[in-house]
Amino acid sequence: MKLHPVDVKTLTPEIFQVFGTQNALLTAGDKTACNTMTIGWCQLGRIWNLPVCTVYVRPERYTYQFMESHDYFTVAILPAGERKTMQVCGTKSGRDVDKIKECGLTLCYGAGDAPFFDEAEWVLVCKKAYVQDMDPACVVDQVHIAPYYGEKGGWHRIYTGEVVEAYTR
């Protein structure tokens, strides 16, 4: 069954449960060039009376340059059996390998030519609404963040996007 558009207001809370059991692919770019990466951090909700999706990207990641240069991004939830795809997209850099081709993913495009994958169970197409760097000085409890920083890389940039389109099976 192909993905089809769905009204954002009709999405069920199931989509909130996939983070923690299934990872997702964050993709940014357009029809000329794009990159995707596995993400495990994502927040969904409302701000300014808009449905929003918030993702986090380190400046060292190749996807970061696409997030910075484009107004739209997508979050695609793949089926749980797509472990190899998640591993490739989470461990290899788009600077060195065409992850989309290697994983056999089928590109589709939403609003703003935002790329996503036909293999997804759900897709959110988001238009950037707010961008801010995380600030280590604002962390209240340092214990919880220790595994995520240090030698692993820089602090994430926060991207909150208005969900302008949604697709499901």
Rank of each mutant, 00 (worst) to 15 (best):
H4D: 06
H4K: 15
P5V: 04
V6I: 15
V6T: 15
V8H: 03
L11K: 02
T12W: 03
E14N: 13
F16C: 03
F16P: 00
V18Q: 00
T21C: 04
Q22K: 13
A24R: 02
L25N: 03
L25V: 04
A28Q: 12
G29R: 11
K31G: 04
A33G: 14
C34I: 00
N35V: 09
T36Q: 02
T38G: 06
I39N: 03
G40N: 09
G40Y: 00
G40R: 02
W41Q: 02
L44N: 05
W48G: 03
N49Q: 07
L50A: 06
P51V: 05
V52N: 09
C53V: 06
T54S: 07
V55I: 08
Y56C: 03
V57H: 03
V57C: 09
E60T: 05
Y62I: 07
T63R: 06
T63K: 08
H70V: 09
T74W: 08
V75H: 01
A76V: 06
I77V: 15
L78W: 02
P79A: 08
E82C: 08
R83E: 03
K84F: 01
K84P: 00
Q87V: 03
C89N: 04
G90P: 07
T91V: 07
T91R: 14
R95P: 09
K99F: 01
K101Y: 07
E102K: 15
E102G: 08
C103T: 12
C103F: 04
C103N: 12
C103I: 01
C103H: 05
L107H: 07
C108M: 13
C108P: 04
C108N: 09
G110W: 04
G112E: 06
G112N: 05
F116I: 04
A120P: 01
E121I: 02
E121R: 07
W122P: 00
V123Q: 00
V125S: 11
C126E: 15
V131E: 12
D133H: 11
D133F: 05
P136Q: 11
C138K: 12
V139F: 15
V139W: 14
Q142C: 09
Q142H: 12
Q142G: 05
P147Y: 13
Y148K: 12
E151G: 03
E151S: 14
E151Q: 09
E151K: 13
G153W: 09
Y159C: 13
Y159K: 12
E165L: 01
Y167V: 03
T168S: 10
R169A: 08
